[in-house]
Nucleic acid binder design. Structure first.
Length: 895
RNA sequence: GCCCCCGUGGCGGAACUGGUAGACGCGCCUGACUCAAAAUCAGGUGGCCGCAAGGUCGUGCUGGUUCGAUUCCGGCCGGGGGCACCA
């Protein structure tokens, strides 16, 4: 369709008498206008992005949704924000990539399959269709031609290929790990699916099981993932901190404690410590109940066995007993102090020592570690302070019930006495590194990370199959590239618990690619976090025959602005950072950090309503009367009173959700978008209120009316610029250009609430200017100013309310699309005032104003200030002690 | 327990690097239009004193630095988030 054929709406209300016209002017009908503009954008393919465009690129991405069924308000907020950025950057002359896809594998599809006997695939694709329609009705400027769904073989085949490449590169490992096993559903549960030690669905007590699982070796990149956080200066500090803590680097010492008497083949205990400075304060050694030495002791000692069993129970008994008492079992074994073989320390099995961290063994220094102190007090072990705060006499320094973990100087520590903690650590490390027992140094420096390898195995159907074959003869064999993808079988049944793939004999049965003998397929599928770890790369070339297209990746990556919920601060974002590096290592990409800018938006929250019997009811089911503290709610159905509860995240269980479809069909997409952007800063939670939505909707109508009024008096589109402007015209132009400057600036900083305020402010000011004309035909320069201001207003509104902006743009007489217009050129000279009014303070309190020329010097300003009545009065004829002039800001007279 | 963030009118929130506290919106009050209502338009709206001009207090509490503090520093109180026997 060419421009001439576009069915341009005739500008409404173009009649002779503007006053009469204003009264009659019809309302903006979003329901009619929005689909019409969407269709025009669609037909002209204006959001379709080319990979070979000479303009500078800009990649804006919102976290893609899980196709749960319908979009929710959180999506509306998230995608509106991204769309504002996308539309703005397009107007600023960038080639913008703004794609959308579906995080389409995952458990809800399997749960739905079990509950409703619908195939996960059918369920997922139906949801995608519904949600796509909903997203389209929001008027998002997305390039839908790049849409991907992670459950489609055309997507996951590449993931399988990369899994194999990672494997070749040594980034995949198969090892045993502890999992939460639901014995009834016969499946592995994620931590969040274990509630009070029981499976969330079956209610069965969850067991800890050792299973052989597939892992990605993310720990190979611990140090890099940590240090590169410093380069992510456009990420929220909070997220970087969370990742830093998650990686949990600590520098310490691996130190061997020789046993006085060897025990079942164990001649020593290796300990990891970060406080080797306190070694002379040691009073015991403790090992984990899972430590090999503990097992060897248990083999001969029933009491030890009983204690270890006790500890295991404690482990499953959940967080309530998290503050569990420190318990230990004295093994009777004695360990020698590394600096003094005659000094023997008791060895305990202790419930608070974790096998998964460090070496599974510690030495306890009660004076300087709270846990060790609690333990020592319980078992009456010595407590000797060895670090004493500066200025305190070591002889009088005593430890009561609180360990001292602050700064200080060493004491009671032989050759370390008087040193700082750092000096003592260095000295201890140096000496023990040199000392040897059995030809090995006693200690070595070690860097320890909390980060563990990423277990990607899931015993589930609806996920990406791990492309591996198990052969009795050849062991674990990769599926050859030519046999990819390993496609999920569709004929599966969910009647019985367990993994349907594991029960699918025909699918499982396969011949070994190496020896052609009988073999079986791996039935684990991948964690869905794998799917979302590279979709942003796939968007750059969604049809490439290989996982990525080098040229496209190099052109588009990194993502310039990524927007999503803070709940993904750690896992998704850390996995993606790892995956991008792994793809670099295997030649699928050429960068380290995928997301240059990250923004985490707040949630959408709403009041909750609860009936007397404690059931939650939805906002749609109630009526609210009164205001402020006197607000009351009652059920629409029977008038029964309902209590108004806390404001919480919208959730199905609290029934405090508002369906975007209802809002869209009542008020239109622009109202919803505008409300989502107003008031609350984007990183904070926004409270959804009916009043707020109505306020937003009022502005939609107001801007529409204002535009039509401006259209009446504005100069024609192409009239040439007058040489001079009067005061009124200049004021109008200042209003428009100030808004232009501020809105642009604030979009770039993602401060959408302020953009909204600027537009309100400008609309107020332009409204007054229009009223002042009283309907009379304005002079040429004033008419020009109105034309300019009207155009600017609508152009800067478009990123936020694109449909309304198109309607207004055509009302202003334009025959093209505002969406395709460049961002207006700022006349910055208009932002400068000729005269400025400075507040005048006397002793720090504002007492007057003084108006001076913009470029007045300090002496002139001082003179003007001293001439003010208020200042004269305050000084009572005396000279001021001091006058502080802050240029362009303020004057303070110190009397 | 450790780490981080946040406390501003009736409400959501503005206030750039220490420089007029309360922009903008919601709500409320008054007026215009209307038979009336809604919508719309005009005006007002932190507390206290005052007819007013104006004064005075005021950014969780409390000290401090400064000519000047919502902003910086110390202590306390309240709310939210992250991690959690991490050696």
């Amino acid at each position: 369709m060419t421009a001439a054929e576009i069915p341009w709406p005739s500008p409404p209300g173009r009649k002779k008498d503007p006053i009469l016209n204003r009264m009659k002017s019809e309302r903006y009908n979003a329901r009619e206008a929005e689909p019409r503009w969407q269709k025009i954008w669609d037909e002209r393919e204006i959001f379709k992005t080319k990979n070979d465009d000479p303009r500078p690129k800009y990649y804006v991405l919102e976290m893609f949704p899980y196709p749960s069924g319908r979009i929710h308000m959180g999506h509306v907020r998230n995608y509106t924000m991204g769309d504002v950025v996308a539309r703005y950057m397009r107007a600023k002359g960038h080639n913008v990539l703004h794609p959308m896809g579906w995080d389409a594998f995952g458990m809800p599809a399997e749960n739905a399959a079990m509950a409703n006997k619908v195939h996960p695939k059918a369920w997922t694709y139906e949801n995608i269709a519904t949600m796509k329609k909903q997203l389209k009705s929001m008027g998002l400027s997305l390039d839908w031609s790049r849409e991907v769904a992670t459950c489609d073989p055309s997507y996951y085949q590449h993931q399988q290929k990369m899994f194999l490449d990672f494997w070749k590169a040594g980034l995949v490992e198969r090892k045993t790990s502890k999992v939460n096993w639901d014995p009834v559903d016969m499946t592995v549960l994620a931590n969040e699916q274990v509630i009070d030690g029981r499976g969330w669905r079956s209610g069965a007590e969850v067991e800890q099981r050792e299973l052989t699982q597939w892992f990605f070796k993310i720990t190979n990149y611990s140090e890099e993932l940590l240090s590169a956080l410093d380069t992510l200066d456009r990420w929220p500090e909070k997220v970087r901190l969370m990742q830093k803590n998650w990686i949990g680097k600590s520098e310490g010492l691996l130190c061997r404690f020789m046993l006085a008497k060897p025990q079942g083949g164990h001649g020593e205990i290796e300990v990891f410590t970060t406080r080797h400075d306190t070694l002379f304060g040691a009073s015991f050694v403790a090992i984990s109940p899972d430590h090999p030495l503990a097992k060897s002791i248990a083999a001969q000692n029933p009491k030890a066995t009983a204690f270890i069993e006790e500890c295991k129970k404690m482990g499953t008994a959940q967080e309530a007993i998290d503050k569990a008492e420190k318990l230990g079992f004295d093994t009777g074994i004695r360990a020698q102090h590394p600096f003094d073989a005659k000094w023997e320390l008791p060895v305990y099995i202790a419930n608070f020592v974790l096998m998964e961290y460090g070496t599974g063994a510690i030495f306890g220094c009660p004076a300087h570690d709270q846990r060790d102190l609690d333990f020592a007090r319980k078992y009456k072990l010595p407590v000797l302070p060895v670090v004493v705060p500066e200025g305190i006499d070591p002889k009088t320094f005593e430890i009561g019930t609180e360990a001292y973990d602050g700064e200080g100087r060493l004491a009671n520590s032989r050759f370390l006495d008087g040193m700082t903690i750092e000096e003592a650590k260095e000295e201890v490390a140096k000496r023990l590194e040199r000392e040897t027992r059995g030809n090995r140094p006693v200690a070595q420096r070690q860097i320890q990370y909390r980060l563990r390898d990423w277990g990607i195995s899931r015993q589930r159907y609806w996920g990406c199959p791990i492309p591996v074959i198990h052969c009795v003869k050849c062991g674990v064999v990769p599926v050859p590239d030519k046999d990819l993808p390993v496609v999920l079988p569709e004929d599966i049944e969910f009647e019985r618990p367990g993994n349907p793939l594991d029960r699918h004999a025909a699918w499982k049965k396969v011949s070994c690619p190496k020896c052609s003998g009988a073999a079986r397929r791996e039935t684990d599928t991948m964690d869905t976090f794998v799917d979302s770890s590279w979709y942003f790369l796939r968007f750059t070339a969604p049809d490439a025959k290989t996982p990525t297209d080098a040229k496209a990746v190099n052109y588009w990556m990194p993502v310039d602005q990524y927007i999503g919920g803070v709940e993904h601060a750690i896992l998704h974002l850390l996995y993606s950072r790892f995956f991008t590096r792994a793809m670099k290592a295997t030649g699928h990409a050429d960068l380290d950090e995928p997301f240059k800018g990250l923004f985490t938006q707040g949630m959408v929250v709403h009041e909750t309503y609860e009936t007397k019997d404690g059931t939650f009811v939805s906002p749609a089911e109630i009526r609210i009367e009164g205001m402020g503290d006197a607000r009351t709610a009652s059920l629409l159905s029977n008038g029964e009173p309902v209590s108004i509860g806390a404001i919480e995240k919208m959730s199905k269980s609290k029934r405090n959700t508002v369906d975007p479809d209802d809002i869209l069909s009542t008020y239109g997409a622009d109202t919803a978008r505008w409300f989502m952007l107003s008031d609350s800063p984007p990183e904070r939670d926004v409270i959804w209120t009916e009043e707020g939505v109505q306020g937003a909707h009022r502005f939609v109508q107001r801007l529409y009316r204002l535009t039509n009024e401006i259209a009446e008096i504005a100069a024609p589109e192409n009239v040439s610029r007058p040489a001079e402007f009067g005061a009124e015209a200049t004021a109008i132009r200042k209003t428009a250009h100030t808004a232009l400057a501020r809105v642009g600036e604030d979009i770039e900083k993602l401060r959408f609430n302020r953009c909204v305020a600027h537009i309100y402010e400008a609309a107020n000011s332009l409204g007054s200017a229009v009223s002042k004309t009283g309907g009379a035909k304005p002079s040429a320069h004033l008419a020009y100013a109105f034309r300019e201001a009207g155009d600017i207003m609508i152009r800067i509104t478009e990123p936020m309310m694109p449909h309304l902006a198109e309607t207004c743009w055509s009302a202003l007489g334009h025959k093209n699309l505002v969406t395709e217009q460049a961002w207006p050129k700022l006349e910055s000279s208009l932002l400068l005032e000729d005269e400025i009014t400075l507040p005048v303070q006397i002793n720090g309190k504002k007492r007057a104003d003084v108006t001076v020329p913009r470029d007045a010097n300090n002496a002139d300003i001082e003179k003007a200030v001293l001439a003010l009545d208020a200042v004269k009065k305050a000084l009572e004829g005396k000279r001021p002690k001091k006058i502080i002039v802050v240029p362009q800001r303020i004057v303070n007279v110190v009397a």
